[in-house]
């Protein structure tokens, strides 16, 4: 990805993916999801008490374009853990139902170590750096 032309939105998205252990790109925010698939994905993460950052892709169409170019995945939401795409709503649902989601997000290991649950990080963390580069 060493393009000569700088692409600030793509860079901001890549940074957000690498900086947050678990990050969800969604329509709307965890508090006010704007799409049923995003709402369901948030609900599953919350029911596992998984800490995650969230980015609202709706304010600028370029966020979705660049995200899909990076992930090679056409739909929203998209859940990443440690820089890897876990999946969209369908895959997250299957993994949630089978118990694989908690495993993939390493939630059991964290519980075993009795680490205090981190607060859920919302859009302010993941989204702001991207929004700042839009103008």
């Amino acid at each position: 990805m060493s393009e000569n032309q700088t692409n600030p939105i793509r860079e901001a998205i890549s940074e957000a993916i690498s900086e947050h252990e678990t990050i969800l790109f969604m329509k709307g925010t965890p508090e006010a999801p704007a799409c049923g698939f995003s709402a369901r994905t948030v609900a599953m993460l919350q029911s596992l008490q998984a800490p995650f950052a969230a980015v609202d892709i709706l304010p600028d169409p370029r966020i979705r374009q660049e995200l899909s170019a990076i992930s090679n995945w056409p739909t929203i939401p998209q859940l990443f853990h440690k820089g890897e795409l876990i999946g969209g709503c369908d895959i997250v649902t299957e993994m949630y139902e089978s118990g694989e989601l908690a495993e993939a997000l390493e939630l059991e290991a964290r519980d075993a170590e009795a680490i205090e649950p981190e607060p859920i990080v919302t859009h302010s963390n993941g989204f702001t750096p991207i929004q700042n580069r839009l103008s």
Binding site: P74, I76, L85
Partner: peptide, 18 residues
Amino acid sequence: SRIEQHKLVYDVFGAEIG
């Protein structure tokens, strides 16, 4: 993987998805 399986199906439709 599931991701790869879903991508195979999404690829059939390209930009029509979304």
